[in-house]
Design a protein around this nucleic acid. Structure first.
Length: 243
DNA sequence: GCGACAG
DNA sequence: ATCTTGTCGC
């Protein structure tokens, strides 16, 4: 599928679109239920040929069994600009999700949701566009900060957005308060944490519990691992086919 | 202006 | 994201 005709073309348009969508995010809701289908999505790029391959892998959230897989190929829709990642990745991701024969009850993204400069990371953006329940799991702190969670699997610490220029005590009426935007979660004992944030229609406690369930054997959720390997394999296959 | 910066 | 070998450890 081609990139949507109304997809933002400039940074200014993208910022305006985020401003419009941010009001529609619902940062609360239940976690997955017994037998729910969870989708993992991820993308791989070939900047040389301006190609992007997205993968969507459906798992049974309870058993972690793979139920279905789908991929989609497209043109890169937007340059990589921190804070505007969704505009680069989502067109292909939407196509991959559409290629599934079943609708996921939850989508786990590789990146952030509410933990975003304007509170609309790709997970939240995807949730608002599709109405699906979503959350994000990122591998690095981006611009946020947290204290180190305990070293045991299951430990976590709040992920904070610290307003710029806040060194001392912000007197009454001065500055903006620090805001909890997610959690640094230790999914494996002794291994660096991942960063969980709400996307849409799910709460932070629920997203954290789901992450720990999906990341029982590895640092990253099984959904992300499966989607990551699938899209890279698909990209490699595609590259070798055209050569 | 400069540096930092999800993937 | 992607470019890239071997190596230490469970």
């Amino acid at each position: 599928m081609p990139i949507p005709a109304d997809w933002p073309t400039s940074e200014a348009e993208a910022l305006a679109e985020q401003e419009r969508l941010r009001a529609l995010v619902e940062p609360y809701g239940p976690g997955p239920a017994e037998g729910d289908l969870v989708a993992g999505v991820d993308v791989a790029y070939d900047d040389e040929r301006d190609l992007v391959v997205a993968a969507a892998v459906l798992l049974d959230h309870t058993t972690l069994r793979v139920v279905e897989e789908a991929t989609a190929v497209g043109r890169i829709a937007f340059p990589y600009i921190p804070g505007l990642l969704a505009f680069r990745e989502l067109p292909a991701v939407l196509d991959a999700l559409a290629a599934l024969t079943r609708t996921p009850d939850l989508v786990v993204c590789d990146g952030y949701g509410l933990a975003h400069p304007r509170r609309l990371g790709l997970a939240s953006h995807l949730g608002v566009l599709t109405g699906l329940r979503t959350y994000g799991v990122a591998k690095t702190p981006f611009t946020f900060t947290s204290t180190a969670p305990g070293s045991e699997r299951g430990s976590w610490a709040p992920l904070m957005d610290v307003p710029a220029g806040e060194g001392g005590e912000p007197g009454p009426g001065e500055g903006r308060a620090e805001e909890v935007v997610g959690r640094a979660v230790r999914t494996r004992t002794g291994v660096k944490p991942v960063f969980v944030s709400v996307g849409h229609r799910i709460g932070l406690d629920e997203a954290t519990a789901s992450t720990l369930h999906l990341a029982r054997d590895y640092r990253q959720p099984e959904t992300t691992r499966r989607a990551d390997s699938l899209c890279r394999r698909a990209l490699t296959d595609l590259q070798r086919a055209s050569a």
